[in-house]
Structures are given as C-alpha cells and as structure tokens.
Design a protein around this nucleic acid. Structure first.
Length: 418
RNA sequence: GUGGGCGUAGCCGAGUGGUCAAGGCGCCAGAUUGUGGCUCUGGAGAUCGAGGGUUCGAACCCCUCCGUCCACCCCA
C-alpha cells in the first residue's frame, strides 16, 4: 500500500475547516497591517538558497530537497520563504515601488529532517517581509503583527524574546570575542560545540548541553559589542516595544540559525514547551538583497509555523469551526424518477444552493441515511407520485413537518430559508 | 545523521507460542411493501507493516528493512 512520503501529510476534508480558519486569520492580519500577498514557485534555483540562506547552515547543508531537472538545472524545493521573496523583489524591480515593500505569503516549505512533534518535511508557514526600510519602526511593526496574530488566535502565554546581533561592521569583532571566550573553555565544551567553534561560534550560545549553557552564561553579549548605529537601532526598537505594551525580554543567547540575519532577531515561544519551543520568529536581513546581487537594501521578516500554531491551539482546547454542509439532499424513489432527480439537483446547484445526491442503486432508507449523514438541512424527495403531481417533498432533517412543493418553486423555497 | 517507544480491518483496540485473531466506532443491509437521526439484528472488511529465521506450531521469540511517535540536532 502506498503512503504519503515520510514527514508529509494529507490535509483531509475534516481538517480543512480549522486549516482554512487559520489561513483566513493570517491573511486578515496581514491585510490590516498593509501587507499584500505574493506567491512564488515552490522550487527555486538552488543558488538562491545557497547564497541567500548561507552555505554553512544546517538548512542548506543537509536539509534541502535538491534535484536536477531534465535540463540539468539544479532546483531546490524551497526550505524557507525569505530568500525566494527577495529573489522576486529583485526580479520584478520592486526597488522602484514605494518602500518598504510589504509582502506576505502562505504555503508549503520542505526540509529533509527527521520528523517529530511539530516538525515535518513538508510544513506550512505564514511569512511576512518588509523590504527596503532600515528604520526600527518597521521592526516594531513586524514584531507587533506576529504578537497580535497569536493573541487573536488565542494561543495562551507566548513570550517574546528579542536580541540584536549587530551588522557587518560590529559582528566580526563580537564573533571574535566569542570565539576567544569559548576557546578558553574548549576542554569543557561538548563535541558538537567544539566543531561549531570554528564554523559558527554564535551557535554555541544556544547549545542545550547544560555544561555549555553554564559556560555560555558568562560569554560576551552581542548587545555589548554593537557599533553605534546598531546600538542606536536597538535602543530605539526597545522604546517602541515598551510603548506597544507587549511584554518582551532580551535574550542574549538568541541567535537563530540562518546566516542572513543582522541586528534585530526575535522569537515567540509558547510557555508550554514541548520539543519544538519556537512557534514563530524572524529578524532583520540588511545584507541579504545585496548578497543575492541587488543594491544594498535592508529588510525584515517574520515566519510562523502553521502546524505549530495548530499544535498549540489544540493544547489550549481550540474547537474548529463547523464543516460546510449541503443545504439540500435529493432523494430519488425508484429507477424511473432518477433522471428527473438528477436534473432537479442540477437545477438547485445552478441556483446557488449547495446540493448533494441523488445516488442511485439504493433504497429510500439508504438514501435518507446518506441525506442525514451529509448534514443537509433538507431532504428533497422525488418519487413517482410526486413527479406525477409536478412536485417534490421538502423534508426538514433537523425537525419540522415535511411539505409538498411544486418543482418549479423548490429552489425559491430553499433560498428563502437560507 | 544519533538514540528510544510503537506497528493487529478506514479508525480505536483486546490478544505475549497451540481451536476458523475479541470488542467498539464507522460502513452496507434488514426490523411487513416509498422516508433519516434512537434501538435491535445481520453482513462486508485483517495475507496480524514487509521479508527472512527459530519451532511440530508464531500476531506473539530472533534478525533485517520500512513506517510511525518521542527526544537529540536544527528550526517553523
């Protein structure tokens, strides 16, 4: 028996109401903040992610679905949105639009990872980017939008962690200081961290190993190494965040795993932590557009995992909106009425009435069971007697008396009740 | 990539070496002839994840693979 690929799943009809509820909430929030939707291809040239996300990141090194198409071009199933959106920004000359360009996307991403709670190989994100503005007002805007989304969805007790990791001017010296510091504790570090020391010292900060954590407690803090411009940016953002009234805290160990981040980085975490503690996060990427071949252009973005939102909503006792149900279910009695029943159902649908049935080859009882199971409000029953009289029986399925209605008025009767 | 738990009908789930593998949900049908929901009755549906091995005999023991869940790693 065939199954969906590992770590990927079908979104079944019963799952659709909650799924679409979520999509709608995201789209609504984005709209309220003035963000417009963009959809990009699910595959991109591999280079977009190689150069955008960073060649030494885990995402690029071991998690990408990369393949050669028949023209020998290397393509990759997008593992994240930001690099792809920036590619679109450049390709379509969005630098000539009013800045910042505010965009959002919703769709599937792919990462070849070992699946576990809240982590899948195909997963979905709501993603937001504001490209072309370096001012911290935009940082505050994006951070606030994410917070409001969680608030309105009713995810209880998320905490907002923020940090600033500097830019190309000040980060190198900070990284050097960090490397020096950890090098002095080399013997006590876990094996992973010893490896990370050379390649990406920032990552030592969020190692889960308790010994490494204790060493990290006294490590140099990025906020102490910021250049004047970065320090001022962070100070201003801090004022804005305080003024917004949403609780937040600086997390000196927050660094995030993608290379393009500069200055502001942030994460939202539900308190009720399982294995996957981050529900959403993002940050500034002032060097990314240039990295992809454009003129230097600042940007900031945010992404949240829809599956993780759902995970948290369900833990909080979230109930999905009720599924869509037909208004009418047409029941045909006997072979000779089947054609007229099919035509009657077709007529109702043309009149805009959601209609299911008829299904032949079953008894009346069987069809009535179907009608009931469909959740339809009315059974429209057509038998030889009704047909002869030019009418059909309209039977309310949630209580009430059946009545006879002329065939030509059935749509009106149903519409009047809708 | 590493470690651990688990894999019995569409779903849940008993059964841990020996009759034709329980039960529940769901599905289909019937309970006097053309009417659902409750109840009752009946039926269909399982090569017990796959392959190999041990044994007179395996769903139950062993091995391999696959899948799944959880954790590490990483991240959403």
């Amino acid at each position: 028996m065939y199954r969906a690929p590992r770590g990927m799943q079908d979104i079944l009809p019963d799952d659709q109401p909650e799924w679409h509820y979520l999509l709608d909430r995201c789209a609504d929030i984005a709209k309220r903040y003035g963000y417009r939707r963009i959809d990009t291809p699910i595959v991109e040239s591999t280079d977009v992610f190689l150069r955008g996300v960073g060649e030494t990141t885990d995402v690029v090194e071991k998690e990408m679905y990369t393949f050669l198409d028949k023209g020998e071009n290397s393509l990759t199933l997008r593992p994240e949105f930001t690099a792809a959106i920036c590619r679109a920004y450049l390709e379509h000359g969005m630098a000539s639009w009013p800045q910042p360009v505010r965009l959002y996307s919703i769709g599937p991403l792919f990462r070849y990872d070992r699946p576990q709670a809240g982590r899948y190989r195909q997963f979905h994100q709501f993603n937001v980017e504001a490209i072309g503005e370096a001012d911290p007002t935009v940082d505050a805007e994006v951070i606030d939008m994410a917070g409001l989304l969680y608030e309105e969805l009713g995810i209880p007790r998320t905490s907002l962690l923020v940090n600033s990791i500097g830019d190309e001017a000040c980060r190198p010296s900070y990284v050097a200081a960090l490397r020096d510091y950890f090098a002095r504790h080399l013997g006590d570090l876990c094996a992973d961290c010893r490896g990370r020391l050379e390649r990406n010292p920032l990552r030592l900060l969020d190692c889960k190993n308790s010994v490494c954590q204790r060493i990290g407690d006294d490590a140099p803090r990025s906020v102490d190494w910021l250049c004047d411009a970065c320090a001022s940016h962070f100070a201003t953002l801090s004022r804005y965040l305080d003024r917004l009234g949403r609780p937040w805290q600086v997390d000196h160990r927050l660094v995030r795993g993608l290379d393009y981040y500069t200055r502001t980085v942030f994460e939202y975490q539900p308190h009720d932590v399982g294995g996957q503690s981050t529900i959403g996060g993002g940050g500034r990427y002032d060097g990314l557009i240039a990295q992809l071949g454009g003129r230097p252009t600042p940007g900031i973005g945010f992404a949240t995992g829809l599956e993780r939102i759902l995970l948290n909503l369900k833990k909080a006792g979230f109930e999905a909106p009720p599924p869509a149900r037909p208004v009418a279910y047409v029941v045909a009695i006997g072979e000779e009425t089947a054609a007229d029943a099919v035509a009657l159902a077709a007529t109702l649908r043309r009149r805009g009435i959601p209609t299911a049935g008829p299904v032949g080859g079953r008894g009346v009882k069987g069809q009535m069971r179907q009608a009931n199971a469909s959740g339809a409000r009315y059974a429209v029953i057509l038998g030889p007697d009704e047909l002869a009289a030019g009418e059909a029986q309209l039977k309310p399925l949630q209580g009430g008396e059946p009545r006879m209605v002329p065939l030509w008025r059935i749509a009106d009767a149903l519409t009047a009740d809708t």
